[in-house]
Amino acid sequence: MRDIIFYLLIIGAGTGGELCVTRAMKAVGEVKDFRPAALVGIITRALRVSWMWAGLTLMGTAFFCLLAVLSRENVSFVVPVTALSYGAGALGGKFFLGEQVTPRRWAGVFLVCIGVTIVIMGRR
């Protein structure tokens, strides 16, 4: 049960964190100038967006949950299971960021989910 909570946090907090960071970077605007001084300015602007802090907090939570799970499980099991974040990402992209998830993208997510199910079923 504890491991299921950790996996849910890795997938949920990790994907939630990425979505928050994406939302923050969309608020900052498209990066066109890659000179070091300009990049420092962009990072400073990004850090003023509250979504960025929410995203970094969530991603940090997911990272420590990943470490906790890796202390007990094989990495060749844990990493494929975290691919479920593609499903969470598609749902989050659709409902949180207003993206259009095409049938082909859903088909890809479905394949990922079948693959993860096989990895879980083959757990020894």
């Binding site: 691919a83 593609y86 890809g108 394949l111 990922v112 693959g115 990895v119």
Partner: peptide, 15 residues
């Protein structure tokens, strides 16, 4: 597990 990983790779490629 290899089969599951292969399907995940295919799914990510489709995405």
């Amino acid at each position: 597990r290899w089969m599951g990983v292969l399907l995940i790779c295919l799914g990510v490629l489709v995405v």
